[in-house]
Design a protein around this nucleic acid. Structure first.
Lengths: 344, 344
DNA sequence: TAGTTGTGGGTTGTATTTTGTCCCACTGTA
DNA sequence: TACAGTGGGACAAAATACAACCCACAACTA
């Protein structure tokens, strides 16, 4: 039997795309306010005219307000966004996509946000919003959270806020990742804890240690303390990288690159490299959380988006712990789904 | 707080009129199938082009089918009509209008169907559909139903069908109304009973009896039997007429017309004339159901539509029994509501 | 059986709306 | 003060919707 929204969609098929795009615009305004027509159009890869038409309607409906400094979302607008989120996700098939991936990968929860990470800057923001929401809604007193680096994980920052919980400790899951300070685990744990009024522990270490130096480090109090934290980690927040991309970004030696290629490394997560079958084929020789420790933690939040990471996702999720909550974008989710036999 | 449909309406204000008109088209197709573009356009007072555009979409959605003999509503279409009825009535304010009239007149139930009786032929059909639904859903074994004449009541015919109930008897509430056989109470009870496989009793009598003849008639077995039926009537189905209109249609004598005008008769129902205050000012001297008998009956279904009858409705509903279910059209309901202080 | 009415589909020139692309005056910030 | 970004205005061009037909056909009527 047909539900009312389904019947509505049958009678008015043209409203579905309309709803999608208008919702997306309003949502983006909310995220980037105050924002102007042109910036908005660039960001959503739409024409200025289209943006203008839609925002005029939204303004007339009182969901949007135009200040001299740009357009902002009104209170009514925020309520509407909240109320229609489920409907929009349902109609655009995101809910179904998510369920499909959940079943296929055997994960606790998959969240698919609309848009394409490569096309639309706001997708990153949506990823962060959802991830932050997942994290905060399950956080508890004294929680220990291991955090890796990366753009996706960094996007969470702006949506963290002081919660009712106390004594949360963020620990950097590994040493520095290289040049980009903004994306380093060490930087992130510090900003995360600032946003949430929490504690944090950093670990500054060079990426490529010699065997000798590595062994020496293992007995350092600073290091053993971190190892202890890793062992007690309640939650792990991490990204998933494509192997080549990561190796390049890490300035790996030609030798390492050769090894990775030889062993068929496809994906990377918290310092481990996995091949297409999900087997660990390499590990960066530095201090960091162990895969076993990740598997033991109560909660794992994985954030990754973009079509270019599909292969990596397919690889890593062969072995990902089932308590993982995975947050990705529509483009990647669709690309994964299209490779599945159960997807029409 | 906003409901989801309300939020949807805020975000997509243009769908409301779209939904209205498309629903109306689909509904009309269902009622008049098979029907062509031009007839449909005439009937709905829309342009052929518009009908064409909308029906093309409906056909594409599989809610409509085009045969050589015209367009018909598919099963899917009927399901959609059913599912969206409440939503359409809500959005077009019909539910609110109905509640308003219910409270103001103190009636058990008011049903307002969309459209204008004077503009749109299908409104009559909708009235009939709703009235038939109300009647059938409450009918019971051995029920005695008194029926008056008129176009509105006649519209019920096509929607009556054999029900689970047995031994229903339709009785003509009064003698003949004059020329138009199709609308006479006597004709209607016969067609009603044919549709429902029920019994019926007719009463053929001239309209204007002399006092002498009237008194003589009262003792006739044929008449006393009818009087007995009237006394035991469980349900009364009647229309409401404007006084002038009815008097003219009944070929009343100039003297009667003068009396009616003098006494300020505004409305007419089952042979009684009421003034603006709802007082009985005149009665046709013929055998028929008594007002007291109507008031005693368990259920009363009143059907009347069109702006020209608003005055009559306002008059009659001053004294209408509270167990009345009143079915009218949007145009009349709005006209009534606009006269009320509580209507913005 | 001949005629009439109503049917869906097709066509075409014209109105109307939508769209792309500017310009402008203004403002907050660096 | 320079500048990047803002909303609002304007206008020609492109796209679309529109009205007004015609046609072959089916179903019914006389």
């Amino acid at each position: 039997m047909l539900s009312v929204p389904e019947a509505q969609q049958k009678l008015l098929p043209e409203i579905s795309p309309l709803l999608q795009s208008r919702y997306r615009i309003l949502q983006t305004v909310q995220l980037m306010q105050p924002i102007g027509r042109r910036t908005l159009a660039d960001s959503l890869k739409m024409t200025e005219r289209e943006i203008r038409k839609e925002t005029d309607i939204l303004r007339e409906q009182g969901l949007l307000d135009s200040l001299k400094s740009g357009m902002v979302c009104t209170d009514d607008g925020e309520v509407v966004i909240e109320k229609l989120r489920a409907l929009v996700y349902e109609w655009s098939g995101l809910t179904q996509l998510a369920k499909l991936l959940e079943n296929h990968f055997g994960l606790q929860r998959v969240i698919v946000v609309p848009g394409d990470y490569n096309e639309d800057d706001t997708v990153l923001t949506l990823l962060g919003k959802e991830a932050a929401h997942q994290f905060i809604s399950t956080s508890f007193d004294g929680q220990i959270v291991a955090v890796t680096g990366g753009k996706s994980v960094a996007s969470i920052t702006q949506f963290l806020h002081p919660a009712d919980t106390h004594n949360i400790t963020f620990v950097a899951a590994r040493g520095g990742i290289g040049h980009e300070m903004q994306m380093q685990a060490n930087t992130l744990v510090s900003t995360f804890s600032m946003q949430m009024d929490a504690q944090y522990r950093t670990l500054f270490l060079p990426e490529h240690l010699s065997e000798q130096a590595y062994q020496a480090m293992l007995t350092e109090p600073m290091v053993t303390e971190m190892m202890d934290y890793y062992d007690r980690a309640d939650c792990v927040i991490h990204g998933i990288g494509s192997a080549e991309e990561m190796a390049v970004r890490r300035n790996s030696s030609p030798e390492d690159l050769r090894i990775l290629e030889e062993k068929g490394a496809v994906s990377e997560a918290f310092g481990y490299y996995f091949n297409a079958e999900g087997e660990i084929v390499h590990r960066i020789r530095t201090i960091g959380i162990q895969f076993e420790q990740v598997q033991r933690s109560k909660q794992v939040i994985a954030v990754a988006a973009g079509k270019q990471k599909v292969k990596a996702m397919l690889s890593y999720f062969k072995v990902a712990p089932e308590q993982t909550i995975f947050i990705t974008d529509e483009a990647a989710a669709k690309a994964i789904a299209e490779g599945l036999p159960s997807y029409k």
